[in-house]
Design a protein around this nucleic acid. Structure first.
Length: 654
RNA sequence: GCCUCAGUAGCUCAGCUUGGUAGAGCAUCUGAUUUGUAAUCAGAUGGCCGGGAGUUCAAAUCUCCUCUGGGGCUCCA
C-alpha cells in the first residue's frame, strides 16, 4: 500500500501500482474535467503509475496548464488526421498557442475545403474516443521510428541529444515524438475548431523548407469555445477598416498604391483634433516645432546608420543629376542636423524638437493592413538632446505625457515594455556592448524609480539603442506597439553632436531620446476607432451635432440653429429633407454623430432643442432630453468639447 | 515577398456547382406626401461582373496570368 496526499489535504491509501487517473477518478469521479495530474510537483499523464508515497493534484481542463495540455493534444489529433489524408506529409512541430494550437507540416499547401474535411475527421476520432498512450524509448529506437521524417530526427539530435531516452505518444496508428503530458483519450478534445492555414518555414528560416501551418482553437468547454468565437465576432464589429469606411475616414485607391491611405474629410477632422491637442501639450512640455523634407541624400542616411542597418525598410533610391536620394523612413537624421545647425550651449539642453513628419517605409506588401500597417506614416515625432544626467527626467516626463494622453483618449488596456538588444544576435545592432549595457541599466533604473510596472523583451531594441515601448492589446487580444521612447547613444558620434559645457569645454556626450507618444496618425486613429467602436467622444466626433427637422416648416429655425452652432465652433450638419423623422434618424445613426437635435414646431416656437443620442453600434436607448433651451445646449456642448470629456453627458436618463 | 481565401451597382449581397451576354435591398435622383422618434408610396438613374488572355457557336460562370483586398507567415518535441 502507498499513501497518496491529495491537494495538500487528505491522505488516502491505495495499492501500489495504481495510476494517477484512477486515484483522481476515485476522489472526484470521472467527470471531474481533469486532463492530467501533478505528481510531486511534476506534470504527469493520467496513466502515470504511483508506486510510492506521493502528493497528487488534478490539472483541470479549464486551468492554464490544462488548456495548454488540451491544445497540445489537439495538435496531435490534427496531425493524426492530416497523415490519414495525406500519407506523405511530414509533421514537424505542433505547439499550443494562445487560444489554440498550430501544427506545421512539410506538405503541399491546402485550402478551406481540405480544412473542413480535416475538421470532420478529427470530430470522428473524438467520438471514437481513442486512447492516447505514452511510450518510453531508447534514443536509437526513436530514431528508427521517425527515420522517414528528417525534421523529427533533427529535433531528436538537437533537443534531446544522443545519450538519453525520450518519449513518444501513440493514438491509433499515429505516433508522435513528444514530451507530454497529454489528455488520456481523444474525447477530451471536443471543443475545437480549425481556423486557418498559412505558410511558415522550418525553424522560421526563409532559406529552409516551406511548411504548411494549420491553425486551430481549442477549449475545455463549449462555453469557452463559444466565448472566443463571440469575442472574434465582437472584434470584427469594431474593425477600423469597416468603421473607417462607414464613417468615411480614409480611402485606399489602387491607383495611388497599397499602404498609402488618403485621409477623407472626416478622418482629417480626427487627425487635426489629435494633432492640435498634441501641439498644445508638447508646447507646454517645452518642445519647438520644425518641418523637414520628405527626402534626402544617401550620404545623410549613411551617416545616420540607417542605410547599413535599415535599408530593407526604406524605399529604393532615386538617382538625380546631383546624387542619390532616399525617401526618409525616419525624421531623426534631419533633426540631428537641426541640432548641429549652430553651436549649442549647456544652457539650451535639454533641446527638444518636434515634427509631425511624414515618413515612408517599404513594408512588405503582405504585411499591410488598413491603417494599422502602412507605407506612409505621419509620426508624432520628437527628439530630445540632453546630457546623461538629464535623461532620467526627460524619460519620466515622456512617460507622464503618454499616461496623460492615454487617459484623455480613454485607453486603459496597455503596458510598458523595456526593449533590449539581443546579445546573441549582435549584427542587427550598433556595435558598442558597453553602451548597450549601461543605457539598458539606466532605463531599467528609471522605470524602477517611477514604479511603473513593465516587462523586458530581448531583441526588441532599435539598432541604435534600447527602448521603452508601450504595448496595446487590441479587441482581438493581440499585442501591438503603440508609443515608444528610445534612447540613442550612437547619434552623438555619427553626427558629432556636442555642446559647450559649464567649463567652456566642447562636450560630446549628447544623448538623444526619440519619442512618439501618439504613435503615428494612422495607427493611432485605427486604435481610437477600434476602442470607441467609432462612437468617439464629442470633441473627436467628425459630426458633433446632426440637426434633424420634423417637417420642412422648421427649415428656417434649423438653419438658424446650425449657424449659431458653427459660430461657436461646433461641427454641425443639417438634414431638412422631407423624409419622415424615423427615416432621418435611422439614416444618420450610421455616421455616429455625438448628438442629434430634433427640431419640430414646439422647439421652433420656444427656441429649444430636443437632444438625442443614437449612434450605430451602441445599444439603442432612445435617450433624449426634450425642450432644452438652445443657448443652454450650446454652452453645455462647448464645455463638453473643451474639456475633452470622454462621456456624452447632455442627455439625462429618465 | 510567400501561403491561402475573396473581388458582381456608391454600400451589403444573390447569381457561378450544371456556360445561353445581370438581379435584390439600401443609398441617389424625380414626383406625390409635410411628417414627433428603427422602413410613406410610385417611378427613374446606376454595372466592360477588378484587369488581361484562353477554351467555346456562346463566359460573371470553365482554365491560365495579373492587380487589389482579407487572414496568416513571432510562439520550437
Amino acid at each position: 500500500m502507498i499513501k497518496v496526499e491529495i491537494n495538500d489535504e487528505d491522505v488516502h491509501e491505495y495499492v501500489s501500482g495504481i495510476t494517477a487517473g484512477e486515484v483522481l477518478d476515485n476522489i472526484y469521479g470521472n467527470r471531474s474535467g481533469a486532463v492530467a495530474a501533478i505528481v510531486n510537483g511534476i506534470q504527469k499523464d493520467m496513466s502515470f503509475t504511483l508506486d510510492e508515497n506521493c502528493k497528487i493534484e488534478a490539472i483541470l481542463g479549464e486551468s492554464d496548464e490544462g488548456l495548454y495540455i488540451l491544445r497540445h493534444s489537439c495538435a496531435h489529433l490534427l496531425a493524426q488526421v492530416v497523415l490519414e489524408m495525406f500519407p506523405d506529409a511530414k509533421p514537424t512541430i505542433g505547439p499550443p498557442i494562445e487560444h489554440g494550437f498550430y501544427y506545421d507540416f512539410h506538405m503541399d499547401p491546402i485550402g478551406d475545403t481540405e480544412l473542413k474535411v480535416l475538421e470532420k475527421r478529427m470530430n470522428k476520432l473524438i467520438r471514437e474516443n481513442i486512447k492516447i498512450v505514452r511510450e518510453e524509448h531508447e534514443n536509437n529506437v526513436l530514431r528508427d521510428m521517425f527515420a522517414d521524417n528528417k525534421f523529427k530526427i533533427e529535433i531528436i539530435d538537437e533537443k534531446i541529444g544522443n545519450e538519453i531516452s525520450s518519449t513518444a505518444y501513440r493514438q491509433g496508428d499515429f505516433v508522435d515524438l513528444c514530451r507530454g503530458p497529454h489528455v488520456p483519450s481523444t474525447s477530451h478534445l471536443r471543443w475545437f475548431k480549425l481556423t486557418s492555414t498559412s505558410q511558415a518555414y522550418w525553424r522560421a528560416d526563409r532559406n529552409r523548407e516551406p511548411l504548411t501551418r494549420i491553425y486551430g482553437m481549442c477549449y475545455a468547454t463549449k462555453e469557452g469555445l463559444k466565448e472566443r468565437q463571440k469575442q472574434i465576432e465582437e472584434a470584427s464589429k469594431r474593425d477600423h477598416k469597416k468603421i473607417g469606411k462607414e464613417l468615411e475616414l480614409y480611402m485606399i485607391d489602387e491607383l495611388i498604391g497599397k499602404g498609402l491611405p488618403v485621409w477623407l474629410p472626416n478622418g482629417q477632422i480626427l487627425k487635426s483634433e489629435i494633432e492640435n491637442y498634441a501641439l498644445k501639450t508638447e508646447e507646454s512640455y517645452g518642445y519647438q516645432r520644425v518641418t523637414t523634407p520628405a527626402l534626402a541624400k544617401q550620404e545623410l542616411f549613411e551617416c545616420s546608420g540607417h542605410l547599413p542597418h535599415y535599408a530593407d525598410g526604406m524605399y529604393p533610391p532615386m538617382e538625380m543629376d546631383d546624387g542619390t536620394y532616399y525617401l526618409k523612413a525616419m525624421n531623426c537624421p534631419m533633426h540631428h542636423l537641426v541640432y548641429r545647425n549652430k553651436k549649442r550651449s549647456y544652457r539650451e539642453l535639454p533641446f527638444r524638437i518636434a515634427e509631425y513628419g511624414t515618413c515612408y517605409r517599404n513594408e512588405m506588401s503582405g504585411a499591410l493592413a488598413g491603417l494599422l500597417r502602412v507605407r506612409m506614416l505621419s509620426m508624432n515625432d520628437a527628439h530630445i538632446y540632453c546630457t546623461l544626467d538629464q535623461v532620467g527626467q526627460e524619460v519620466a516626463n515622456n512617460i507622464k505625457m503618454v499616461q496623460d494622453y492615454y487617459s484623455t483618449f480613454g485607453f486603459e488596456n496597455y503596458h510598458f515594455r523595456l526593449s533590449l538588444w539581443d546579445p546573441e544576435n549582435t549584427e542587427k545592432y550598433i556595435e558598442q556592448p558597453e553602451n548597450w549595457a549601461s543605457t539598458q541599466n539606466h532605463l531599467r533604473q528609471i522605470l524602477d524609480e517611477l514604479q511603473v510596472p513593465y516587462v523586458e523583451a530581448i531583441g526588441e531594441a532599435a539598432f541604435y539603442g534600447p527602448k521603452i515601448d508601450i504595448q496595446f492589446t487590441t479587441a482581438l487580444g493581440r499585442e501591438e506597439s503603440m508609443s515608444t521612447i528610445q534612447l540613442d547613444f550612437a547619434a552623438k558620434e555619427r553626427f558629432e553632436l556636442s555642446y559647450k559645457d559649464e567649463n567652456g569645454d566642447e562636450n560630446g556626450e549628447v544623448f538623444v531620446i526619440h519619442r512618439a507618444p501618439l504613435s503615428t496618425h494612422e495607427r493611432f486613429v485605427a486604435f481610437l476607432t477600434e476602442h470607441w467602436a467609432g462612437n468617439f467622444p464629442t470633441w473627436l466626433s467628425p459630426v458633433q451635432v446632426q440637426v434633424i427637422t420634423i417637417s420642412e416648416k422648421q427649415k428656417e429655425y434649423a438653419s438658424e440653429v446650425a449657424s449659431m452652432l458653427k459660430e461657436a465652433g461646433i461641427r454641425v450638419s443639417v438634414d431638412d429633407s422631407d423624409a419622415t423623422i424615423g427615416k432621418k434618424i435611422r439614416m444618420h445613426r450610421k455616421m455616429r454623430p455625438a448628438y442629434m437635435l430634433i427640431l419640430g414646431e414646439d422647439e421652433a416656437t420656444e427656441r429649444t432643442v430636443s437632444i438625442r443620442i443614437d449612434r450605430k453600434g451602441e445599444s439603442r436607448s432612445g435617450d433624449q432630453s426634450n425642450g432644452v433651451p438652445l443657448t443652454k445646449f450650446i454652452t453645455d456642448i462647448s464645455i463638453e468639447i473643451n474639456t475633452k470629456s470622454r462621456k456624452l453627458s447632455l442627455v439625462s436618463k429618465e
